[in-house]
């Protein structure tokens, strides 16, 4: 696969960043934000006279297939949240990487598991919680909407002040006509894999004896399995999973220059390219403190 990243930085800043971090993929320079603007994702909330901040995009990522068609987009309204490399790789390369084998169906009954797609849930970085239903041959599960008396396949995550949960991503459904009534419903074809993007805010982590942390994620899954003739009773089950987690970085834990480059020099150039203000003046203004 190929990876590119673009920003409104100058080429020499990107070259310094590349040296500092051994970057092996192209970093593209869009110093006038011409490409950002052409894509229609310029952050227009920032005032055009607000230098050097004006010119950044609403941050996001596009995933393309081999033909160059956009197959997925990841955009977040806040810079505090971003997709994980695992999510991007999954979107680009498909579902067959990383995950363990599907759970087995339990005889004639549906089996399910809940796994965390990643190694570590960092604050603000989104990973997928994956709920996988193994559906016995000849049976199917239902997608929304369903008529009264039937249960669609759902996953509900328990509210937690330290947890950020994005809408679940379901596989596509196919139409299915009931033999008895002739009614057409939407069903999932075979096994069902549901992805729920989650991240944490370091507000409800559980410390472990070894100094590490976990984020506990609880929820409820519901489903109803049917074959062409009969339906099983609806099922509901509670799950709880402890995900390895890393708390917010705090200033005291960070390097003096986290970008590993001469940040003041580059920032000075960025300011000077569009305004006569000094770097100190610009930095003072963003703190919101009174003069």
């Amino acid at each position: 696969m190929a990876l590119y990243a673009i920003s409104y930085d100058e080429v020499d800043a990107l070259a310094d960043f590349t040296r500092a971090h051994d970057v092996t993929f192209p970093l593209l320079s869009d110093p006038d934000s011409e490409i950002i603007e052409r894509f229609g994702i310029l952050n227009t909330i920032i005032d055009p006279d607000d230098h050097p901040w004006y010119g950044i995009p609403f941050p996001g990522a596009y995933v393309l297939d081999a033909d160059g068609t956009i197959v997925t987009k990841f955009f977040e309204s806040s810079l505090q949240f971003r997709p994980s490399a695992d999510q991007l790789l999954r979107a680009a390369l498909g579902d067959d990487i990383h995950l363990p084998p599907m759970p087995a169906a339990r005889g004639e009954s549906v089996g399910y598991d809940v796994i965390f797609d990643g190694d570590l849930l960092r604050a603000g970085v989104l990973h997928d919680l994956v709920v996988r239903f193994a559906v016995p041959e000849g049976q199917h599960l239902y997608g929304e909407p369903v008529p009264d008396g039937m249960v669609a396949t759902t996953v509900e995550i328990e509210p937690d002040l330290g947890l950020v949960v994005r809408p679940a991503i379901f596989p596509p459904t196919v139409p299915h006509t009931l033999a008895g009534t002739g009614e057409t419903l939407r069903i999932f074809d075979g096994d069902v894999v549901i992805r729920i993007p989650v991240t944490q805010l370091s507000r409800s982590l559980t410390p472990l004896d070894d100094g590490s942390f976990v984020q506990r994620i609880g929820g409820t899954v519901r489903w109803q399995a049917c074959d062409d003739d009969t339906c099983h009773l609806p099922r509901s089950d509670h799950f709880s999973i402890d995900v390895p987690a890393a708390p917010h970085h705090r200033p005291e834990a960070e390097l003096v220059d986290p970008n590993g480059m001469d940040m003041p020099a580059h920032l000075t150039k960025m300011v000077a390219r569009r305004t006569d203000k000094s770097l100190g003046q610009v930095l003072f203004e963003i703190t919101g403190h009174d003069a």
Binding site: M1, A5, S7, I56, A61, V63
Partner: peptide
């Protein structure tokens, strides 16, 4: 297949 990222700076 490609990932193309627009980031802040």
């Amino acid at each position: 297949a490609t990932v193309f990222v627009f980031y802040r700076s």
